[in-house]
């Protein structure tokens, strides 16, 4: 589904991502782990083109996406969440989701001005779809609250709901477990499994919480110094010497 070849990026002489290659198959969940500063988030920012790669190629569903701007990638079906949460804080919970839905369901400005039948139908669909997503992620009843007023855990879920509202095929999740306690993480794992089954998704996830990532991933890729140091099933990764040295050794699982 997604193939990344020899991706490269330097910041002021420091090689953040150094010839990194990987692929994800349809329906798979891939976990990317590695110590802080290993270049994981940079890889996401390169795939979604918030950074311009210095070198390398990327293909999504057989189509080259190396030179597409971020919004085109979203419309092709690549959705993402952010490490530090990037909700539309001043907009309502509902608007956070309808906005994402409406990027893929277009009507002309004139339809908007004169409120044609098409405009009204699409707006209604956006609302219905958003309500469905909110219920699904346990945010029902909060649609009129400003997104910034939600508690942290709910903001995390809202961000996932927003990503789902663009009907993605591939979902890139950046540290969904950050700042959550073990109980919340358990809920999150359950939610992510449900989301994946229901929306027929392929998932790439960056995560620090080993419990979460080992639990949910079909395959795990370990990064350090901008490079892939190994790749395998969760049980293989757990046993690998290099991984234990580079990463797991520091904090026992």
């Amino acid at each position: 589904m997604l193939e990344v070849e020899r991706l490269e990026k330097s910041f002021g002489g420091v090689r953040a991502v150094d010839g990194f290659s990987f692929h994800v198959d349809k329906g798979e969940t891939l976990g990317i782990i590695g110590p802080n500063g290993a270049g994981k988030t940079t890889v996401f920012n390169l795939i979604t083109r918030f950074y311009t790669p210095d070198g390398g190629r990327m293909r999504f569903m057989g189509k080259s996406i190396t030179h597409l701007p971020p919004y085109r990638l979203a419309r092709l079906g690549i959705a993402r969440t952010f490490q530090n949460l990037r909700l539309f804080k001043d907009l309502t919970v509902l608007e956070n989701i309808t906005s994402a839905h409406l990027t893929g369901h277009s009507y002309s400005p004139f339809a908007g001005i004169f409120r044609t039948r098409r405009h009204l139908r699409i707006e209604r669909e956006a609302r219905d779809n958003a309500m469905m997503l909110l219920d699904f992620l346990g945010l029902g009843g909060k649609e009129q609250a400003p997104a910034g007023s939600l508690p942290y855990g709910e903001q995390r879920r809202l961000e996932i709901a927003r990503a789902l509202a663009i009907r993605p095929r591939l979902l890139l999740i950046d540290e969904p477990g950050a700042g959550m306690n073990p109980r919340e993480i358990q809920d999150l794992v359950a939610t992510l499994r449900e989301v994946k089954a229901r929306f027929d998704l392929t998932i790439v996830m960056i995560e620090h919480q080993m419990g979460l990532v080992m639990n949910i991933s079909d395959r795990i890729l370990v990064m350090d110094f901008g490079e892939k140091i190994m790749e395998g099933t969760p049980s293989e990764v757990r046993k690998d010497r290099r991984v234990i040295e580079a990463y797991l050794g520091e904090e026992p699982v």
């Binding site: 979203a74 959705a79 990037r86 804080k89 001043d90 608007e95 906005s99």
Partner: peptide, 18 residues
Amino acid sequence: LFWRCIKDDETASASIGI
């Protein structure tokens, strides 16, 4: 709605396809 999204967070706006 898109305009207000952009005012709030331009990066997030691009990430949802605006």
